[in-house]
Write a protein that binds this DNA or RNA. Sequence first.
DNA 1: CTTGACCCTGTAGCAGGTCCAGGGTCTGCA
DNA 2: TGCAGACCCTGGACCTGCTACAGGGTCAAG
Lengths: 143, 143
Amino acid sequence: MRIGELARRADCPVETVRYYEKQGLLAAPRRSGANYRDYGNAHLERLAFIRRCRSLDMSLPEIRALLGAIERPGADCAPVDALLDEHIDHVAQRITDLNALKEELVAIRAHCAGGQPAKTCGIVEALSRRRAPRRGSHVRGAK
Amino acid sequence: MRIGELARRADCPVETVRYYEKQGLLAAPRRSGANYRDYGNAHLERLAFIRRCRSLDMSLPEIRALLGAIERPGADCAPVDALLDEHIDHVAQRITDLNALKEELVAIRAHCAGGQPAKTCGIVEALSRRRAPRRGSHVRGAK
DNA sequence: CTTGACCCTGTAGCAGGTCCAGGGTCTGCA
DNA sequence: TGCAGACCCTGGACCTGCTACAGGGTCAAG
C-alpha cells in the first residue's frame, strides 16, 4: 500500500510517517517504479504500535528503546517491563508536580478580593514574591 | 547592574534574559559606553515576576497578556483574575489527562507475567492493540 | 488531454529556550 | 604597562515532535 493508505489506516499524518522513517523508527519500505513508498502489513503494525506508544506519551527515544528490546532475538520482556515502569514513574512524578502547581495557583488566586486597580491587586503582589523553590523535578522539560 | 548580576539575582540564565528582551517581555535597558546592557531595580522586579510566572508554567503569551493587563493605566484586576482562572483550568485539565494516562499505563503493565520472551509478552501485545481514543483534549501539546 | 488527487524531496517554522563561535571589554595582579 | 581570565556583545545552530509549505512528478477518471 502507498503512504496515504498506511497513514489513513494508522490514523497518522503522512508527513509524520516520513518523519518516523527519517528518525529510524519505521523501516524504509521498498519503492515502486515511480519512487513511491510501498508498505506491507508489518509496516502498518509497527506504525500502529508507535502511535499507540505516542498516545501513551512516550518519547521517540523511549519507543526506539522499546522496539529494540522487543526486536532483539531471544530477549525476554524484563527490559520492556523496566521501560514501562520508568515511564509510569515519569508520569506519576509529573502528576505530583502539577498538583503542587495547581495548589500554588489556587492560593495565589485567593489573594484577589476583586474590583481593585490591577497595581494593588493581591494577585499581582503574590506573583511578584519569590517562592522557596519546589525541590526535585521541574514540571518544565519533564514533557 | 550588568546582565550577569541581573541574571544571578533573578536565578535565570543570561541567555534567557536576552531572549525575553527579544520576545518583548522585558524592556530593553539603556546601554553603557561599551554597549553593555545596564539594568535597574525595575528590570529585576519584572524579570523575577516573569520567572515566577514561568515557574507556575504559564506560557510567554500568557505572561505577556498578564503584564499588559497590569501595566494598562487605570485597569482593575478583573482581567488578571480571568487569566489566572483560565490557567488553573488548563493545569487541572492536564492533571485529569495525565491521571487517565497513568491508569492506562498501569493496566498495560499488569499484562506482564514476567520472564517470557519479549515477543509473547502481554505488554507488547497490549501496546499493539488500538484503543478507543480518549475524548477531548490531548495530553500532547498541552505542555 | 486535462483536472485533481496523490506522491516525492527539501526546507522552514512552532515553544522556550540552550549553546556555541567569534569577537570586544574590563578588572586585578605582577 | 602587560596580560590572563571573567565578563559582555551579536548572530546563528540546535533540541522535540512534528507541521506546513514550495516546487516538482505521477496516476486515474472523465
